Amino acid sequence: MLSTPADGTRLRILTWLAELGTAERGLTADDVAGRLGVPRPAAVSHLRLLTSLGLLRATPGDGGGPRYLRDEIRVAEVTRLFEKGW
């Protein structure tokens, strides 16, 4: 699920959310849409899927919708599963 679509969009979102500065404040759907160059609804779909997988958590934003942060514990769990070849 993470590598679909084939261009690695969801992996890029997870990578951005690990960057210094972004990791602390998170990203909004508008931030993701702007960085990806896609419509906001497409960004929201990616963020919702990552949230439903437990890889992101949504926190209240400052009027522009939720801010998304990585759930580092869940990301580590999934990473371990992939390393085991599951």
Rank of each mutant, 00 (worst) to 15 (best):
T51H: 13
T22L: 11
R57Q: 10
G64N: 14
V75L: 14
P66L: 08
L50M: 11
P66N: 12
G63N: 09
G26H: 01
T9A: 15
S45Q: 14
V75N: 04
R48Q: 09
G61R: 11
G34C: 08
T15D: 13
T4P: 01
L14V: 13
A23E: 00
E72Q: 12
L20E: 13
L17T: 06
A76C: 03
G61L: 05
P41K: 09
G61H: 07
R40Q: 11
G65M: 08
L11A: 12
D30W: 04
L53D: 09
A6D: 12
V44K: 12
T51P: 01
P60H: 07
A29P: 05
A58S: 15
A23D: 00
L49C: 04
P60S: 12
I73H: 15
P60L: 10
E19A: 10
G64V: 03
R40S: 06
L69S: 02
L49K: 15
D7L: 01
G21I: 01
T9G: 03
E24V: 04
R74Q: 14
R48E: 14
L53E: 13
T4D: 10
G21E: 00
L55D: 04
P41I: 10
D31L: 00
D7R: 11
L49T: 02
T51F: 03
I13A: 12
G54W: 07
L36E: 08
L50T: 05
G34Y: 08
L50W: 04
A58R: 13
L56M: 07
R67G: 03
G37M: 05
G61C: 13
L36S: 08
R10T: 00
G63S: 07
W16K: 13
A6R: 11
G65I: 06
P5V: 09
G37E: 05
A18G: 13
L47Y: 02
L50K: 08
G37W: 06
D71C: 08
R25C: 06
T51D: 11
E19T: 02
A58Y: 06
G21C: 01
L55F: 06
A42C: 10
D62S: 15
D30N: 14
Y68H: 15
W16S: 01
A43S: 12
T28F: 02
L27E: 12
D30M: 12
D31G: 05
G8I: 00
V75P: 03
T59F: 04
R10G: 02
L20A: 14
D71S: 12
T15M: 10
A18Q: 14
L20Y: 07
T28P: 05
L69Y: 00
G61Q: 10
E24K: 01
L11I: 13
G26V: 02
T51I: 01
S52A: 15
G21L: 00
E24L: 04
E24M: 05
G61Y: 08
R57S: 03
T59G: 10
D7Y: 11
R74D: 09
G65Q: 05
W16E: 07
D31P: 03
P60Q: 13
